[in-house]
Design a protein around this nucleic acid. Sequence first.
RNA 1: GCCGAGAUAGCCCAGCCCGGUAAGGCGCGAGCCUGGAAAGUUCGUGGCGGUUUCGCCUCGGGAGUUCAAAUCUCCCUCUCGGCGCCA
Length: 421
Amino acid sequence: MLDVNIIRSEPEMIRSMLVSRNADTEILDRFLEADEEWRKLTGDNNELRKIRNKVSAEIAKMPKGPDKDAKISEMRDTGEKIKQNDARMAELDSVREDCVLNIPNIPHESVPIGKDSTENAVIYEWGEKRTFNFKPKEHWEIGEGLDIIDFERGAKVAGSGFYCLKGDGARLERALINFFLDVHRKQGYTEVFPPVVVNTASVTGTGQYPNLKDDMYFIEKDELYLNPTAEVPLTNLLRDEILAKEDLPILYTAYLPSFRREVGKHADTKGIIRVHEFNKVEMVRFVLPETSYDTLEILRKNAEDIIQALGLPYRVLLLCTGDMSFSCSKCYDLEIYAPAKDAWLEASSCSNFTDFQARRTRIKYRPEPHLKSEFIHTLNGSGLALPRTMVAILENYQNEDGSVTIPEVLRPYMGGQERIG
RNA sequence: GCCGAGAUAGCCCAGCCCGGUAAGGCGCGAGCCUGGAAAGUUCGUGGCGGUUUCGCCUCGGGAGUUCAAAUCUCCCUCUCGGCGCCA
């Protein structure tokens, strides 16, 4: 959510921002129109209330009689007028809120202008792509060959888009989760195990609601959403809190299953690249505003360290305005190389949300004692999404006989085992 | 699921029965005092707008009654306790 003062004072900047993000500008005009009338009525009612407060105090002190009755009757009309204005303001306010909740964050000046993912900037590549002296298999072939991924039975239990890991596959998943969390703990994050369901206030706070609401699983009876990303519960842990300046930065990490309905998305339906339920380890940072862009670089490094430790080739993308998600002002994607299709898989997204989420969640700090509290900045990065890391490991570490070598850093988590199969 | 008790400023808490400017304490900050500190004392310490001394809003959320609601009525949410059920 943007500061409404910015929308009022620089509407043309907001308009061109919306265009650069492929968003509809009609929302801006709707806001400005509603806001103008709302502000006028606010002023009117302020004035009417002032009169009513004053006269009510006089009434309290007046003796019974026609003078008093006249005042009361007068104030009855004033009260009626206030009530009418309030009703109109409530209408306008819901328009304003609807608009402001649907206006995306303002991209940082370093973000390239572009219409879609083809215009993202590749910052650099890391690692050597392995050369194979045989034709590398797809991850699902490897997984099924080793009986460590079971698509059919996963679908039997929960439906299409759900899968099951077995044996060393399940152990590898657990090893990765533990490894990721251990690394992040050493990087300074506090490990958290939050709820897997989140309420509407939480998904509104981080910006998934309303614009991504159809992509989340919703439990109607309890009005709860299945967690779409641990960014939601982690960020909302501190919702409506005023933090002490000396407590910042606050760093949380969590392993949590994530659920996405993936409506209308038909690419990558084979394998585990795009599924409805996946595990993910997430990092969230609550920081002082002036440090957030430097922190984004650190956050990205925190995620990169993991991919490097696994020895997987990857590249860093700086997303352009047209491809960035709703809440962020700047975002890097980390894509791991998958040799079977000669493709890059997005395994991490590291974003600075500036005060956009903090404003929605009302997370503040006091710069100096007794000064006005201000919104903090929030950042979030995946470290990492499990299925795509699994794909990259299976494909990059596969051997000609169908077995998979376990990356060295994971072996301590698998009882010293060196290969699967 | 049933019954009961609660929700008031950063924190604690009074006011509610009986409607009329939200009291007090803690913590924090500033001034006075002091050689310095403590103690003492004065002031400040929710939000928005205007910017000297002003106004409006704010008592978990919403609706209602009233000239006037923290206070009365109704609905909802959350917390705590008891009972029930339960991995």
